[in-house]
Simulated scan of single mutants.
Amino acid sequence: MKFLHAADLHLDRSFEGLIEVADSFQPYLLQANQKMLTNLVDTAIQEAVDFVLLAGDTFHQNRPTLKTQRYFFAEMERLNQAEIPVFMNFGNHDYYQAERYWFTFPDNVVLFTQEAVETKRFTTKKGEQAAVTSFSFQHPLIEQEMIDQFPTKTSDAFQIGMYHGGQMPYAPFTLSKLMEKGYDYWALGHIHVPQILSEQPWIVYPGTPQGHTQKETQLAGVKIVENIGGTTTVRSVEIAAVQWQKQQVSLARVRNNPQLFQAVKEQVQIMQPTLLQIELTDGEALGAELAYQAASDELRSALQEELPEHIFLWQLTVADAPEERPYLAVEEALVDQLIATYQEPTVFQELLQELDQNPAIHPLLNQQFKTEVITELSQIMKDTYRFRAVKTDE
């Protein structure tokens, strides 16, 4: 048995935190959600899965645009033609209201529409028995623990619990209660960062497959779940149409302003549509002019013209120059000599004389304490200062 588990597609959601998007990059953003959905369907067909699970927040709101509805139903029809059923519930963003849908769900889409737990049983084309137990939001919030309504597994069918939520006030649950049900797989939704809460049984948040903000960079796409001979495995397939990425670009070899553009082009080698944040490092040779042009946003705009159209440079920053360690006009060997002095028992004991008189502290001032203090002091000295180079005779 093989199935695809996805959640939190958030179709219709726009990309947040972007200003003055380059005209050449606009089509990538406008088509990203549709492309992501197409990638999902392509993956299901290529993997020849037995069914697909959509665990809530497929749409970004409970009144999807008609354009998005039409595209979604067309993609579901592609799965219908491939004889792949889809089990779908509704989350806190796309909570279910029947009148909001203007097109008919294809016959292969099995809906959970009630704020009450129900089970759908079916047989795969290979004759394997499976059951999906779930519920849907009909309001933006569900404060009760819906897990209490889930029945305990009692049959030999591969039992899946599909649950959107996990925290107040969005259908909270405790991990222990999920595990008590005896299910073979928990298909979770709601949390955008991919998380595996358990492997026995598998309890999985696939996360949102398409990041829509700069914070949504930890993506795992969708999960492909296989059960062979009673052993279940889970792997990820990326389906994002546009990625968010931060990259450091070193200017260590740049000696004048024009060389910066070539350094960026050489180091930024990205092939897929990307919302890019660049942090320039090692730019001391360019002086204050670099910081000025970056702060004015002119340098970002100029660099955008140098990059391929499938990359939009949405943010450019300059890393702070590391503070230089103070210079001591002595050789580093002097530190070792000073440390050796403090290792003398009488000297060390004199330094700790007042502490040693405290009966609560006295037992702690043993040889191990002395060794640790001396070692740490030596390291701090060497990490804090630069030293004069040792002169050698030629």
Rank of each mutant, 00 (worst) to 15 (best):
A98Q: 10
V225Y: 11
E332Y: 05
L299E: 12
T119C: 13
P194M: 02
D320E: 11
K120L: 02
T384D: 07
K391L: 14
Q114S: 09
N257L: 04
Q81Y: 02
G165D: 11
E20R: 04
Q218I: 07
L276D: 08
V237R: 05
I374A: 05
E145K: 09
Y185T: 01
L251D: 03
S155H: 11
G17H: 12
P140K: 14
R235D: 09
A263S: 11
R255M: 10
W202K: 00
I142F: 07
Y342L: 10
M179Q: 14
K35A: 12
E324Q: 15
A131M: 15
K391C: 11
I84D: 07
L141D: 05
Q218L: 06
Y71H: 15
T375I: 04
M76A: 02
T231S: 14
F137N: 03
P363S: 12
T124L: 13
A22F: 00
I203D: 14
Q343V: 00
A302N: 11
V109G: 05
S136G: 15
R78H: 06
L53S: 00
Q379I: 00
L37V: 00
F72N: 14
N92M: 04
R63M: 15
I361S: 12
R300D: 12
I339P: 12
F112Y: 08
V109L: 01
F122D: 11
V264W: 07
H5P: 13
Q218M: 03
Q46P: 04
L9P: 07
A333T: 09
T43P: 11
F122Y: 06
A302G: 06
R386C: 00
I19S: 14
Q195V: 00
M88E: 09
W244N: 08
E289T: 06
T123S: 09
D336V: 00
K370R: 15
T274M: 08
I84N: 07
E394V: 09
K265T: 10
V330I: 15
Q267H: 11
S301K: 14
